[in-house]
């Protein structure tokens, strides 16, 4: 599964791909604030729809993405079930104290309408946030990420850390496969049909040790190559991947500034002041 990671190294040619790294990173950060600040379905749903449109416009490899989406939906479903198990009455806290019991399993485990609403909103919020990150990951290259972060005054060594880490993720996948194959040639059974699940899990943990060691062994190579190209000489840095702003970038600038102002307004009026309801609940 690790060879299906979605990192782009070459910029694509759709509308979102052509934006500058600066616009992508700034829009993404504003959208993150927007998503984190509230549990209001009226705010999350439009972004959810925009996320689907954005994803479609990128023309991604759906086959790979489908696999990812199945995992994410499964993990989040498991999460909300665990949330419900931890506190079946969690909805009362969020939706203003109501207990509309829908059905009762035992005295401890019952399902209220408020809890159901809270868990549903939470689920949509998580899927939306995944969608926003997928659109971001698919539309950006590691150097554009560094350039974008540099444009919001992050020190360039930290930018390099982000872009290198991003760039290195597919390599980890490749190394994992290589180590796995070489273990198999030495007779370690990793075939799902022949080894039991427990054995395979144990073998997969054994792969991690050489994976970590070989990754850190590569540090010297990469840093020498960077030193030879004069990395870290200057106090500032410019990025080759960053091009001039297009019309679309200017339009996006208006959007993200407006959205940021809206977020500031929302946080001041909703998140710092006490509320009757912690989230919008239409049936209260």
């Amino acid at each position: 599964m690790e060879n299906k990671l979605l990192i782009n190294l070459i910029p694509g040619d759709t509308f979102l791909h052509r934006l500058t790294g600066k616009t992508k990173v700034r829009t993404f950060i504003v959208l993150l604030i927007y998503l984190i600040m509230s549990f209001d379905l009226r705010l999350i749903l439009p972004l959810f729809i925009l996320g689907i449109i954005g994803l479609k416009s990128l023309k991604p490899a759906w086959k790979t993405l489908k696999y990812f989406f199945i995992i994410i939906v499964a993990v989040n479903l498991l999460n909300i079930v665990l949330f419900w198990l931890a506190d079946p009455d969690i909805g009362a806290y969020w939706c203003g104290g109501g207990h509309t019991v829908l059905f009762k399993l035992t005295d401890r485990f019952y399902l209220t309408a408020e809890t159901l609403w809270y868990l549903m909103v939470r689920f949509i919020k998580m899927i939306t946030s995944f969608m926003v990150s997928v659109v971001f990951i698919l539309s950006i290259t590691p150097s554009e990420l560094a350039a974008g972060l540099y444009s919001i005054k992050v020190p360039y060594k930290i930018c390099t850390i982000f872009s290198l880490a991003f760039r290195y993720i597919p390599d980890i996948g490749r190394d994992f496969q290589n180590i796995k194959v070489s273990l198999q040639t030495r007779g370690v059974e990793l075939d799902p049909k022949k080894a039991s699940l427990k054995d395979r899990l144990k073998q997969n943990v054994l792969i991690l040790i050489p994976l970590i060691i070989s990754s850190f062994d590569r540090v010297a190579n990469i840093s020498n190559a960077m030193d030879l190209r004069g990395y870290g000489r200057g106090k500032t840095r410019t990025y080759y991947s960053e091009h001039e702003e297009l019309k679309a970038d200017k339009a996006f600038k208006v959007i993200y500034v407006a959205l940021l102002l809206f977020c500031a307004y929302w946080i001041i009026t909703h998140n710092t002041m006490p509320q009757d309801f912690r989230m919008w609940y239409p049936f209260a």
Partner: peptide
């Protein structure tokens, strides 16, 4: 810088 990046990945 490189070690931190690889560690983070």
């Amino acid at each position: 810088v490189v070690a931190i990046a690889i560690g983070a990945a």
